[in-house]
Amino acid sequence: MVQERPPLPPFSYETALQKVQSAEDAWNTRDPQRVALAYTEDSVWRNRDTFLTGRAEIIAFLTWKWEHELDYALRKNLWTFAENRIAVRFQYESHDPSGQWWRSYGNELWEFDDHGLMRRREASINDVRIDESERRIFGPRPKEDYGQESPLK
């Protein structure tokens, strides 16, 4: 039996916002098992130059990611939506094991099945070296900041 992951498509503006915030909240846990439950068993991804298929590969990738992108904190913003698709802009900050901080900027294209599980994710991401003093993303977003846009620079 397939689990449903509300909100379900077709998306309205409000339900698309909910879907984006729930993804941000899940990714900020840095729990690969939890995050992977939002994707179909055969979900396909492109993350930068990495191509993945299925939850097992997603879990392995996210495990590796969060072992290398330390103190990861993410902000996602809805860009647009239609029917069963959502486009997202995002920024996250993390530091590598040497202590160098990075701000990563990206865009994602999401496609969902009828049960609200993501069956396709394509992410394009660029990294900018920052000083720790330039950080502006600290942990999960407080509820009072839901929907706030992230500054471009």
Rank of each mutant, 00 (worst) to 15 (best):
R30I: 10
A26P: 00
L70Y: 06
V44I: 14
Y72S: 10
I59A: 04
T29W: 00
R55M: 05
W64K: 10
W79S: 14
A38N: 07
Y39D: 01
D49T: 13
T53N: 06
D25A: 07
E41R: 09
T40M: 09
D25C: 03
E67H: 13
A73G: 14
H68G: 13
E69L: 13
E57S: 07
W66K: 04
T63E: 00
D25R: 00
N28Q: 04
D49C: 14
E69K: 09
A56N: 08
D42S: 11
R55A: 05
F61C: 06
T63D: 02
P32K: 06
L78G: 05
P32D: 11
L74P: 13
E67Q: 15
A60G: 11
W79K: 11
D71S: 11
N47R: 12
E41V: 14
R46I: 14
I58D: 02
E57F: 04
E69R: 05
L37H: 00
Y72W: 12
E41H: 09
L37Q: 05
V44T: 13
K76T: 02
V35M: 11
E69I: 07
T53S: 07
E69Q: 12
W45Q: 06
R46V: 15
V35N: 00
T40C: 07
I58Q: 02
D31F: 04
T63L: 02
E24A: 07
I59L: 01
I59V: 14
T40K: 03
D31C: 12
Q33D: 07
F51T: 12
L52C: 03
L62Y: 00
T50H: 13
W27R: 01
E24M: 11
T80M: 12
Q21L: 13
F51I: 15
T40Q: 00
S22N: 03
N77F: 04
T63H: 03
I59C: 02
G54H: 06
H68I: 15
R55N: 08
D31W: 07
S43A: 14
E41F: 13
N47V: 15
R48K: 12
W79Y: 01
F81S: 08
K65F: 06
A36H: 05
W66F: 15
F81K: 05
D49M: 11
